[in-house]
């Protein structure tokens, strides 16, 4: 008969192994796409046929792909800017003010990502074509702000929750008007989350294909181009684009994390003050 501890230990190892497989399942398609993007064989199958960079060469000389990349960048930057600004406004309102219908306001702000993209696409297409915007780049931009705004709002709201309520009051107390307080206190406090929200919303826009496919008309973005390739036949170009986009997204995210990581390092330094002679460090002081 096995002891309880022994059983726990085995359970633990089983859990770790299982978790490993889960991560394998999640990462396998990403890894496979990376590997096949360098595989000489047109068809993605084993055994591998040898190393080539032809697919990358072919992809990035394809005028349609180049155009799509330019368009995606042109859309995602204003989308990120607008969603971050609007997301900040919404997050701050939720943080600072009490008003009637506040929960409805929150619902309206946060709901879009839960609506299936196909339905959003159809709704946007029919609505925007009524005001003669469907088929324009504007249509993609507008829809992507709707989808990305909630992500920005959520991230900035989380940061605001960490703000000592007395911080704004202190600013008013020092004769800063509410507008000056917003500019000199609240925005600097949220800086890292604003940068992170900008990067994440840019990534959301760069990755969104379904709504863009409905409303973009001939103005294909990168993921829409990928969808068109996918509708065609087997195409290693998809792997090349996928790998390129993945690498740049991860780079962006790493930069974003670096921003918040820097904040963490600063805070860690604050926990062990350089001048302990001054006396006890209070947790009550400014543990932000």
């Amino acid at each position: 008969m096995m002891s309880g501890n022994g059983m726990l230990k085995i359970g633990r190892w089983f859990g770790w192994a299982y978790t490993g497989y889960t991560f394998l399942f999640i990462l396998a398609p990403i890894a496979a796409s990376l590997v096949f993007s360098f595989n000489a064989d047109r068809f993605p199958s084993l055994p591998l046929k040898g190393f080539t960079t032809d697919w990358y060469g072919g992809t990035f000389t394809d005028p349609l792909v180049i155009e799509a990349f330019q368009r995606s960048v042109m859309v995602s930057i204003p989308v990120a800017l607008l969603s971050t600004i609007l997301g900040f406004c919404a997050a701050y309102c939720d943080f600072r003010f009490e008003f009637r219908g506040k929960s409805l306001f929150g619902l309206l702000m946060l709901l879009p990502p839960t609506i299936p993209a196909v339905i959003m696409g159809l709704g946007m297409l029919s609505y925007l074509s009524r005001i003669n915007l469907a088929g324009e780049v504007w249509a993609v931009l507008i829809s992507h702000v709707v989808i990305a705004l909630p992500f920005a709002m959520a991230m900035i709201r989380l940061r605001l929750a960490q703000m000592d309520a007395a911080l704004e009051e202190a600013s008013w107390n020092l004769r800063a008007s509410p507008a000056q307080t917003l500019w000199h206190v609240v925005l600097p406090f949220c800086k890292q989350s604003l940068v992170a929200a900008f990067l994440i919303t840019a990534a959301v826009s760069f990755d969104e294909f379904a709504v863009a496919w409905f409303v973009s008309g001939l103005n294909e973005t990168v993921p829409v181009r990928v969808l068109v390739f996918l509708q065609g036949q087997v195409s290693p170009v998809i792997n090349a684009i996928g790998t390129a986009v993945f690498t740049s997204s991860i780079l962006l995210v790493a930069i974003g994390m670096g921003f918040s990581g820097m904040g963490k390092a600063k805070r860690a330094a604050a926990d062990s003050p350089a001048q302990p002679a001054g006396g006890a460090v209070t947790n009550n002081g400014l543990s932000l």
């Binding site: 004769r175 600097p188 400014l286």
Partner: peptide
Amino acid sequence: PWRRELPLVWQSLALFPF
């Protein structure tokens, strides 16, 4: 509050961390 001349020292100090 922003038109008064009555500065306050908070219990939490409320210093601007940035």
